[in-house]
């Protein structure tokens, strides 16, 4: 099986490098879209969770629990089949459906990241701000959030790493990401292991270098504390 391993890898790379490159692009694009919008929606959810209006906080808690309590693959299927029926006038591409599912999934995790980041700020900070006469909003914006960001940013980076790996599930719908590239190469070259190894190495290089970058950034943040 492994007799032609080296030459098969070379063959796959020379013939399909464009496909792998495109896969990297789409995987990164999908991850970026997911984390970007996931962060916006997740932050809003985190604030909703803290709302004094019961219905709002209950909704946010329910959303987070349901999304985190069901498999991503199931959510992908659900949105893939449900969204075009639900919103036929929008003419959603499958890339859009998959992106929406990923964003919704990630926002639940980001909500928890933001919440934990806020909770990790010493309550004495908010107390000190309130005794100076700042209202709740001013305290959150000027005192708590700037400190919470330092806890949140590194965790968001890690979420990005996780999402890069999770987007592989999107290949179920052939959206052109790295795993889709693998499936294509496998089909046309009748090779399983070699393209898998190539794609695996690419994933690892992506996530490993990103993790290193994040921990470097994290140390810088800590040093400025």
């Amino acid at each position: 099986m492994f007799t032609n391993f080296g030459s098969n890898i070379t063959r796959a790379l020379t013939k399909y490098w464009g496909l792998f490159l495109e896969g990297i692009g789409i995987t990164l694009l999908l991850s970026f879209i997911t984390v970007f919008f996931g962060t916006i929606i997740g932050s809003i959810l985190a604030l909703m969770r803290r709302s004094r209006i019961k219905a709002v906080s209950v909704f946010a808690v329910g959303y987070v629990e349901v999304i985190r309590g069901t498999p991503l693959l199931l959510q992908l299927y659900l949105f893939y089949f449900m969204l075009p029926d639900l919103l036929p006038f929008m003419n959603l591409s499958k890339f859009a459906c998959v992106s929406i599912a990923l964003v919704i999934n990630s926002s639940a995790y980001v909500c928890e990241i933001v919440r934990a980041g806020i909770q990790a700020v010493d309550p004495g900070q908010a107390e000190a701000a309130r005794t100076l006469g700042l209202n709740g909003r001013q305290t959150m914006l000027r005192i708590v959030m700037p400190q919470a960001i330092k806890n949140i940013l590194p965790a968001l980076g890690n979420e990005f790493v996780t999402v890069i790996k999770e987007t592989s599930l999107a290949s179920t719908f052939f959206v052109g990401d790295l795993m889709t590239a693998y499936a294509t190469v496998r089909g046309s070259m009748y090779l399983v292991i070699e393209p898998l190894v190539i794609v695996g190495i690419i994933y690892f290089v992506l996530t490993f270098s990103l993790s290193k970058l994040i921990s470097k950034f994290e140390r810088r943040l800590k040093a400025s504390d």
């Binding site: 004495g124 900070q125 000190a128 701000a129 005794t131 700037p146 400190q147 504390d225």
Partner: peptide
């Protein structure tokens, strides 16, 4: 009403 705390609670940022 100014208040001073046991653990200072100065703003580190």
């Amino acid at each position: 009403m100014g208040m001073v705390f046991q653990h200072f609670n100065v703003f580190p940022h």
